[in-house]
Design a protein around this nucleic acid. Structure first.
Lengths: 211, 211
DNA sequence: CCGGATCCGGGTTGATACTG
DNA sequence: CAGTATCAACCCGGATCCGG
C-alpha cells in the first residue's frame, strides 16, 4: 500500500495495518494463536490465496507477524504474532466493540464462525482473578461449537468442545451473539429460546456486563 | 468497498471504516470538530478531491458523518461526526498509541501538522478534574503553533496560539513529538534542546505519564 | 475561492488455475 | 499443504473542468 506520507501516529499505523485484510489476519492470529497458512485461509473465509501470501510477507517485514518452521512430524510453517503484533489487540478490540451493533439487525449471507466472537467475550469481561476457573461451551444451531474458559481472571475463548463444561449454552445464532456481546441479558435470552445446561452462575461469570 | 461478508464485529466495522482515508477523515473531524470540505482537504494533505467526496458520502450513508448547511453569511456545508462517529475515538486513539513508536526514527518527507498530535496528548493524560485550567502553547521549529488546554480534567488541544499561556514549549520537531507522546521526559528533553518559558508545572499537567 | 464532478492511466484486488 | 502465476475487474490518484 502507498504510504499516506503524513507525520502522524494514526497515519503511520494505517501505513502498516491499513491494507485490506491485514487487520483480519491479525484478528485471526490473536484468536487462534500460531496458525498454518491453510487454517488462516479457512478462518478468513474468502481471502484470495495470493493476497494472504502478500499480506503475510508485508506484516512479517513490518515486524507484526513472525513465521517459524514447526519441527517434524508436523513439518509446516506456523505464523504467529510478534510481541509488537500482540499489542494490536487493543486496536482490534476497540474496532470490535464499535462494530458489534452492526450485527444486530439480521444475519444475511455472511459467513458465520463461532471463534470470531472470542475477542468480544474477552474484552467485555472484567477480571475477577480470585475465583475458580470455569468452562462454558457455546453451541450455535448448526455451527461448530466454541468454548469459553476463565483462567485466573483472564478469559480464554477457543474453538472446539470442553471435556467437562460447567455449563452449555445453545440456541439460535442471533440470540447467542446478542448474549455474548452484551446486548441481551440472560433472563431475556432464555425466555426467547436460549437453553442453558449446567451452572447458570458459571455462565454469568463469562458473559460481559450488560452494555 | 466490498463487504468482507463475515458475521464478525471486527469485519463489520472494517466494512464501514476500513476504506483508505476513511479513518483519517474521522481523525480530522475528531480533532477539528465541524469542518468545511476545503479544510478537511488541507488537513488530510494529499487526498484526491474525488475520494474525499466519495468517502464523505459513504460515511454519511453509514451514519458516521453528518453534514449541515451553515447559515449565511458563511453559506457553506459543515461536516461533523454524528454521535456514532464520535464513538470511533477509542478506535483512533488505540491506533495512534500503537503507531506512535513508528515516528521515532526520523522525519522523512512526511507532511508535518501540529494538530495531528492532539489526540495523542489527550489520550495520554489521566484526568485530575479538581485543578485549575492551564493553557500551554507548543511551538515546533518552522511550523504552525498548537495550544493544549485543560478544562475540568479534560485535555483540549487545538491549532493556534493562546492569549495568556501558562507555559510555552518550543524546540525541534522530533524532540517535541517525543515529549508529547511520552517517549521522553521533560528533564531529558530540555537537556537536549527543548526550551520552556513559563510554568514547568503547567506543562507537566499536560504531558502524558511516561510510557 | 469553495465544493465538488468527470475522465483517464496505473496499481490493487479477487477468482481461478497451476505447481512443488 | 503452501503457496505462485495469470488475468479481468475494480479502485485510487492526479489533473482538469465547472457551477455557485
Amino acid at each position: 500500500m502507498r504510504s499516506y506520507g503524513q507525520y502522524c501516529p494514526v497515519a503511520k499505523a494505517l501505513d502498516v495495518i491499513g491494507d485490506r485484510w491485514s487487520l483480519l489476519i491479525v484478528r485471526e492470529l490473536l484468536i487462534r494463536g500460531p496458525s498454518r497458512y491453510t487454517d488462516l485461509r479457512k478462518g478468513l473465509d474468502g481471502i484470495a490465496t495470493n493476497l494472504l501470501a502478500d499480506r503475510l510477507r508485508e506484516l512479517e517485514a513490518a515486524g507484526v507477524v513472525g513465521s517459524a518452521e514447526a519441527p517434524p512430524p508436523v513439518a509446516t510453517t506456523l505464523y504467529s504474532l510478534t510481541e509488537r503484533g500482540q499489542e494490536l489487540e487493543r486496536v482490534v478490540a476497540a474496532l470490535g466493540r464499535w462494530g458489534a451493533p452492526l450485527l444486530a439487525a439480521e444475519l444475511p449471507d455472511d459467513a458465520y464462525r463461532s471463534h470470531r466472537f472470542a475477542l468480544a467475550v474477552k474484552a467485555g469481561k472484567d477480571r475477577s482473578p480470585s475465583q475458580r476457573p470455569v468452562a462454558v461451551e457455546v453451541r450455535v444451531d448448526g455451527e461448530e461449537p466454541m468454548v469459553v474458559e476463565t483462567v485466573g481472571g483472564d478469559v480464554k475463548p477457543r474453538a472446539g468442545t470442553a471435556e467437562h463444561p460447567d455449563a452449555v449454552v445453545s440456541g439460535p445464532t442471533l440470540l447467542i451473539v446478542a448474549l455474548l456481546t452484551g446486548r441481551l441479558d440472560l433472563a431475556t435470552a432464555t425466555s426467547r429460546g436460549v437453553h442453558v445446561d449446567g451452572s447458570r452462575e458459571a455462565l454469568t461469570r463469562v458473559l460481559p456486563a450488560r452494555s
